[in-house]
């Protein structure tokens, strides 16, 4: 196992870039999705269900872009992963709470 880790050389710069790329591509995509869900619930009562979803979707690419830039600006890959996971969890929980507030049926 240790041998394998050494083979992969997890501390090397190219591994870090690879890890960040994965974080940006997949973590960023999940964040784009979770943010769109959050906005969909947040604006539900003010602009109607479909438009709320639509606004969330329109903004998702901007969220995605910001997430990717942020991933490549922090000091380490693990920080990037940690931040993305925390933010995603926050958004999913907040969405769930809003759903309870708005009533799940709507």
């Amino acid at each position: 196992m240790t041998y394998l880790f050494n083979q992969f050389n997890l501390s090397s710069p190219s591994w870090a870039v690879f890890s960040r790329s994965l974080a940006a591509i997949f973590g960023g995509y999940v964040l784009a999705t979770s943010s769109s869900l959050f906005i969909g619930q947040l604006l539900l009562n003010s602009v109607g269900k479909y438009q709320a979803i639509h606004i969330g979707l329109l903004l998702s690419f901007i969220v995605y872009a910001c997430a990717a830039m942020w991933v490549f600006s922090v000091s380490s890959a693990s920080k990037a992963w940690g931040g993305l996971i925390k933010l995603n969890v926050f958004l999913f929980v907040a969405t769930w709470l809003l759903m309870q507030l708005n009533g799940v049926a709507s």
Binding site: L57, L58, F61
Partner: peptide, 18 residues
């Protein structure tokens, strides 16, 4: 250009909501 395929790219989100 991205908006043209908005519903393809963000299908996960629309499937979860509708």
């Amino acid at each position: 250009g991205l908006l043209f395929f908005l519903f393809t790219y963000m299908a996960l989100s629309t499937n979860l909501q509708t």
